[in-house]
Amino acid sequence: MINNNDQVHGLNTNKTRQYEAGLYLISTPIGNLQDITFRAVEVLAQSDLILCENTQESQKLLSRYNIHSKYGTYNDYNHKIALNQIKQLIAAGCIVSLISDAGTPLISDPGYKLARDLKQEGYHVDAIPGPCSLIMALSLCTLPTDSFYFGGFIPKTEQARRNFFQKASGIHTTLIFFERQNRLVSSLQIALEIFGDAQAAIARELTKLHQEILTESLSSLINTLSTRNIKGEVILLISNATPIVKEDEMDELIIEMLANKMSVKEIVSSVLNIYPNGKKNQIYRRANELKNQ
């Protein structure tokens, strides 16, 4: 786990201490390396061991801030071995830091089991807050921010994605997901079927030169992105704050509008204003059926 074949007893435990021995969960930049807090740099510099998701990625950050602490890899596969070694280090008075490739550790990244097990055994665990891509995306997307649900990564297979979105459709708030670029349009198409033509947003390349946030309806996003070559991981946000209209409620609404001599086109527009998550084609079809009856 420790880089360069260093052993636990080979670490320098005589550094000047400002922080209590323990595990520190440190948020790192999500793109722009300047987006790191003074305290994060300070703790990393005082760390006896830095646990990384990917040492090659982390080395760029550590080099940028002239941090020479020992570092090694931590993941779910080496958890048991790492746990015992980290407990020895903390017991010896060491500071151990955990960082992910980008953003806040434990958020769809390894580390939960490590923090949980150390905390349960009475070891000191703390966090140094900082960048988090899903919060930045939520701040910039102009969708409702009073509450939100984070669902993590969208599943790979089509049926799993369909089930995933169907379950999320019962959560009436702004929904946030991570998605791979090669599956984005397909996921948007499935979301359109389940959520209707809801307002949504995609955020990508956050804090980088080509940062992009698009907020449109799901159908518009599909049209916009279908011919584009999207790079990198994407954050998908869907506004699901308004419950999807029930058929009997929609029928009553349409019948009332027909009685007021409204055209089918006017009815569709009015129903969508009341229920933004309604499906335009479904409303149009039902309005014609009731009109003919």
Results as ranks from 00 to 15, higher is better:
Pro105Arg: 01
Thr224Ala: 04
Ala102Trp: 15
Glu205Phe: 02
Gln211Trp: 02
Val125Pro: 00
Phe165Lys: 09
Glu158Asp: 10
Val245Asn: 03
Gln211Lys: 08
Asn12Phe: 09
Asn75Cys: 14
Ala115Asn: 07
Asn3Ile: 03
Asn182Ala: 13
Asp48Thr: 06
Phe38Pro: 08
Leu51Arg: 02
Leu106Phe: 12
Thr104His: 01
Ile50Tyr: 07
Phe195Gly: 02
Pro155Thr: 04
Asn229Ala: 07
Thr173Trp: 14
Leu89Ala: 07
His124Pro: 07
Gly72Tyr: 01
Val41Met: 14
Ser47Asn: 02
Gly22Ala: 13
Glu233Phe: 13
Ile194Phe: 13
Tyr24Phe: 03
Pro29Ile: 05
Gly151Lys: 07
Leu184Lys: 01
Pro129Arg: 04
Asn3Trp: 03
Gly10Trp: 14
Leu258Lys: 09
Asn281Cys: 07
Asn32His: 14
Gly170Asn: 15
Cys52Glu: 02
His210Lys: 10
Ile244His: 15
Tyr19Arg: 06
Ser133Ala: 15
Gly278Val: 10
Glu216Phe: 09
Ser147Tyr: 14
Gln18Ser: 06
Ile30Arg: 03
Arg17Glu: 15
Phe148Thr: 06
Asp35Ala: 09
Phe153Glu: 06
Ile67Gly: 02
Thr207Cys: 00
Glu252Ala: 10
Glu212Lys: 06
Arg285Met: 13
Gln56Trp: 09
Thr16His: 15
Thr173Asp: 12
Ile50Arg: 01
Ser97Asn: 10
Leu140Met: 08
Thr207Lys: 00
Ser219His: 11
Ser69Ile: 09
Asp48Met: 05
Ala115Cys: 06
Arg286Gly: 06
Gln282Lys: 12
Pro131Gly: 03
Gly170Val: 08
Ala203Ser: 14
Asn163Asp: 15
Leu192Gly: 03
Gly93Phe: 08
Val96Asp: 01
Ser220Ile: 11
Leu89Arg: 00
Glu158Arg: 05
Gln46Thr: 07
Ser139Trp: 05
Lys113Leu: 11
Gly170Pro: 09
Glu266Leu: 10
Ala102Asn: 15
Ser270Thr: 15
Ala82Gly: 12
Gln88Glu: 15
Pro110Glu: 03
Ala191Pro: 11
Cys52Ile: 00
Leu225Ala: 12
Gln18Asn: 13
Ile254Asp: 06
Gly151Asp: 03
